[in-house]
């Protein structure tokens, strides 16, 4: 057991840290369009310097990094408060799926534009029961959410023609391909998520210390201290589970039991964190201008996006614990 970084891993981290410190473009601009262009430019900059898709094979524009280095990358980007990338779904899901199941032609065609953010990918998994009756083949409509923004879109397909050469993994293999896509989403996002949770927690600690309560600060309140400490512990458990999962993946090719728990655990942690933040805010939680108000609302989606907690529990129960399936 050795939870320290090897000299090579440390060198990787230091090189990346220095590069990010030098090239960090600062705060994201206001407005959806401007923010998107900003993220696209940032990703292009990473790509040009060889930092996009670090764990992808070198022949497709990646860096051929190990899983530990990928984890370091994700941690460092969050730690440096680096901007988000424009093509998160292409990098985390679409690309790895094409690498795993695509033909050589598909890899040549799709992978580089994913890394450079020249082509932006989205993921279309959630479907209503019935189809649409729109005239055009592909129509995209923003989907307004409870925070007031539109991160997600509705996508309407009406007899849209897709060339055969774009089928990934061949006909009739859709489920396997979809599973790969989802596994990549959960495995690679987990590392960034745990660091994001740590940063949010540090902000919450500061907030509690600065918030006056009963003649002291909210951080002096016994109950709030206990809850803050519990969240700190949970955030460490999330990190440690992620590292144990990483070791298992490197040794045995698949994550161990703990690897399937990360996304579910993170969503609970992040929700609890925003809930405590509003408790710390006290009566001010009525106001919209508190940044935690937004986070509280946004966190409601955490247990839905990327696999609902209920589905993740089904997966754990069936695949990890070996409990029988209902159907």
């Amino acid at each position: 057991m050795d939870l320290t970084l090897s000299p090579e891993e440390e060198a990787f981290r230091d090189e990346l840290r220095a590069w990010v410190a030098e090239h960090h473009p600062g705060r994201e601009p206001e407005g959806d369009e401007a923010a998107f262009q900003f993220r696209r430019d940032w990703q292009k900059q990473l790509y040009d310097a060889g930092w996009a898709g670090v764990s992808w094979p070198r022949e497709y524009g990646g860096r051929g990094a190990t899983l530990v280095e990928q984890a370091i990358f994700n941690e460092e980007m969050v730690r440096a408060r680096a901007p988000q990338l424009a093509n998160v779904l292409g990098l985390a899901m679409g690309g790895p799926t094409v690498i795993a199941h695509g033909t050589e032609e598909q890899r040549q065609r799709f992978l580089t534009p994913i890394l450079s953010a020249d082509e932006i990918w989205c993921q279309g998994f959630s479907e209503p029961d019935s189809g649409s009756d729109l005239a055009s083949a592909v129509q995209v409509r923003p989907l307004r959410q409870i925070t007031g923004e539109a991160e997600f879109n509705e996508l309407f397909l009406e007899e849209a023609r897709i060339p055969d050469e774009n089928i990934v993994g061949g006909e009739g293999n859709g489920w396997n391909v979809a599973i790969t896509t989802l596994m990549h989403e959960r495995a690679t996002l987990a590392f960034g998520l745990q660091v994001a949770a740590k940063i949010a927690l540090a902000e919450l600690f500061a907030r509690a210390r600065e918030t006056p309560l009963d003649g002291g600060s909210a951080a002096d309140d016994e109950l709030i201290r206990q809850r803050l400490a519990q969240l700190y512990i949970e955030s460490e458990v999330l990190r440690l589970n992620a590292y144990r999962g990483l070791t298992a993946t490197m040794k045995y090719g698949v994550p161990g039991a703990e690897g399937s728990l990360g996304k579910w655990h993170w969503s609970e942690l992040n929700q609890a964190l925003t809930e405590l933040a509003l408790d710390v805010a006290g009566p001010r939680a009525q106001l919209w201008d508190d940044p935690w108000t937004y986070r509280f609302l946004r966190a409601r989606a955490n247990s839905i996006e990327g696999g609902t907690t209920e589905i993740l529990k089904n997966i754990v129960a069936e695949r990890v614990l070996g409990l029988p399936r209902l159907r």
């Binding site: 728990l261 529990k313 089904n314 754990v316 129960a317 614990l321 409990l323 029988p324 209902l326």
Partner: peptide
């Protein structure tokens, strides 16, 4: 164990044990 009232409880136990 097919019922989610049971299986989800077991999944929760695994989360706590692994943690």
């Amino acid at each position: 164990g097919v019922y989610q009232a049971i299986s989800h409880r077991c999944a929760q136990m695994l989360l706590e044990v692994e943690g």
